[in-house]
């Protein structure tokens, strides 16, 4: 029995990255599929458009925060294997952001491009969101291993922009709400906390 238990445990340990990745796939994809199925079928409250924009926005933000939590966790508990799921979380954050943007374009402004571009220019919260999106887009694009190798040092430089992206998203959220700043306030606190865990890194940048 004892031997059996250790093998189970060791199988689990050997495959923990895989298991974690499967969990992340399921937890990210299933809600997204359910969301659009319900929304197409008009089963998502009175205004499915708002619901979809809200859900994909929050999902993308949550996933990005989770990806930023990985490094501090891995360091603190010396679990380097965790770093292997960071890219997946980042890519899902980007996937949610793509759904968010496309839903805004297709279902909110309904391909009225004049309105779309006017909104980007006139609404500071959307301008900021687009800024964050462009950063996430470039990070997702350069996340391929081959590109990462060929980019060398500039890869890390580029990917440091994620800190700006998460700040912009926190601001985007804060500015997008009509009233009641509690929830976006909480998110801002979490964002600043996650960044503060990296203060040594930021200090080094400024010393140079």
């Amino acid at each position: 029995m004892v031997a059996n238990k250790t093998t189970l445990k060791s199988v689990f340990l050997e495959n923990r990255v895989l298991l974690l990745k499967i969990t992340i796939h399921l937890m990210s994809l299933l809600p997204l599929v359910a969301l659009y199925l319900l929304a197409f079928d008009d089963q998502l409250g009175a205004d499915p458009v708002k619901e979809v924009i809200h859900f994909t926005g929050m999902g993308g933000f949550n996933l990005l925060l989770l990806s930023l939590l990985i490094m501090p966790l891995a360091k603190k508990y010396r679990q380097a294997y965790l770093l292997q799921v960071r890219r997946l979380l980042g890519l899902y954050s980007f996937t949610y952001a793509v759904c968010h943007l496309l839903s805004f374009l297709a279902f909110e402004v309904q391909f009225d491009l004049t309105l779309f571009f006017n909104e980007i220019i006139d609404r500071p919260y959307i301008t900021v969101g687009v800024g964050a999106f462009i950063i996430l887009l470039s990070l997702a694009f350069t996340s391929l291993n081959s590109l990462k190798r060929s980019m060398g040092k500039s890869w890390q430089k580029l990917h440091n922009w994620v800190y700006l992206a998460v700040l912009l998203i926190a601001l985007h959220y804060f500015w997008s709400v009509k009233s009641g700043l509690f929830d976006p306030g909480m998110y801002a606190v979490i964002t600043v906390f996650l960044l503060s865990l990296r203060r040594e890194k930021f200090k080094r940048w400024f010393k140079k």
Partner: peptide, 12 residues
């Protein structure tokens, strides 16, 4: 300038 009229119908 414009609005979304909520009637029946889902995302589309």
């Amino acid at each position: 300038a414009s609005e979304r009229r909520i009637t029946s119908g889902g995302l589309f």
